[in-house]
Design a binder for these strands. Structure first.
Length: 292
DNA sequence: AGTGTATCCTGCAGGC
DNA sequence: TGCCTGCAGGATACAC
């Protein structure tokens, strides 16, 4: 669920309610969501004051008064909610000194919470790729990243170490908007297509942030609201429906275990597909040993 | 280097 | 209604 636009929306919401508030008590209800021993986690947060809320890639980053950071990877179903009453699967409860609280809620518990001291934070942040909305992330830079890999471009976009914050939904949407086939080898995307993909990617991410993200099921903003980007999806989840550009039926394919959606006409000459996956299996002869 | 698979978990939709 | 299967927005580890 939560990709860059969702993490950004949550961070903005928390930034309105969290800074300046001190944590009185931390209850780890589900030990598997915290990184390292429970006691260490609790001790690192109790008594500290929350400062600014931000984001790195698809992680929500909450600064604590002592320059350490609480990094929240929301996994598939993680949420950060300001009221326990909205929580269906509370995993960590932060009770504030002012009587309020912050709940980390996570049905599937694929999310992780980690406390990083300043140097660890810098080290960890360096393991992630560039922020796609940063000024420094240019079309040329994207092209440079793509040129170094033969992986399908969709997979490249999902790799947090190469570009931070993109998940399957926005990868699929950006590829549709940029008219690039999801399975095209990354290094087959030329500079012009890379520039188009770059513009498409940033536009999709910005529009999604403006709509407060995409709720397919579990995602909620810090205010408990659903995201509004769902109706703006043009490819993701639209298999069998007409492409809004050319009316060709949107297709769903699965590779590397994950679905991709695309328009064959806008995005995909079968050309690159065929060169990657030769359809030709010429032999109609029975395999050795299966002959009568 | 890249691909496929399994793993961590739960909830839900769809088929029977 | 209930049981079963497959699927899901993420990340990682492993074998090949």
């Amino acid at each position: 669920m939560p990709e860059l636009p969702e993490a950004e929306t949550i961070a903005r919401g928390l930034n309105r309610i969290l800074p300046g508030r001190a944590v009185r008590r931390v209850s780890v209800l589900r030990e598997d969501v915290v990184d390292g021993p429970r006691d260490g986690f609790v001790a690192a947060v109790e008594g500290k004051c929350f400062n600014a809320a931000g984001r790195r890639g698809k992680n929500v980053v909450l600064s604590l008064g002592d320059s350490s950071r609480l990094v929240v990877n929301l996994g598939m179903t993680g949420r950060l909610l300001p009221e326990l009453s909205r929580s269906t699967h509370p995993a960590v409860l932060f009770q504030m000194q002012d009587g309020g609280c912050l709940v980390y809620d996570d049905a599937r518990r694929f999310g992780r919470l980690a406390i990083l001291a300043a140097p660890e934070w810098r080290r960890w942040s360096r393991t992630l790729g560039p922020e796609p909305l940063a000024r420094s992330f240019t079309g040329r830079r994207l092209h440079g990243i793509l040129a170094r890999s033969r992986s399908p471009v969709r997979n490249l976009l999902l790799d947090q170490k190469r570009i931070a914050g993109i998940g399957n939904i926005y990868a699929v949407e950006a590829l549709w908007a940029g008219r690039v086939h999801p399975r095209a080898p990354a290094n087959s995307v030329g500079p012009r297509s890379a520039a188009r993909l770059h513009r498409a990617l940033r536009k999709v991410l910005r529009n999604a942030i403006q709509a407060r993200g995409t709720t397919l099921r579990d995602y909620r903003t810090a205010e408990g609201m659903e995201g509004g980007f769902g109706p703006a999806l043009r490819a993701y989840g639209r298999a069998g429906q007409p492409c809004v550009r050319c009316r060709t039926t949107i297709r769903r394919i699965v590779f590397t275990g994950r679905p991709a959606y695309y328009c064959r006409r806008c995005q995909g000459s079968g050309h690159d597909l065929r060169s990657v996956h030769p359809m030709a299996v010429p032999s109609t002869r029975p395999r050795e040993g299966s002959a009568p």
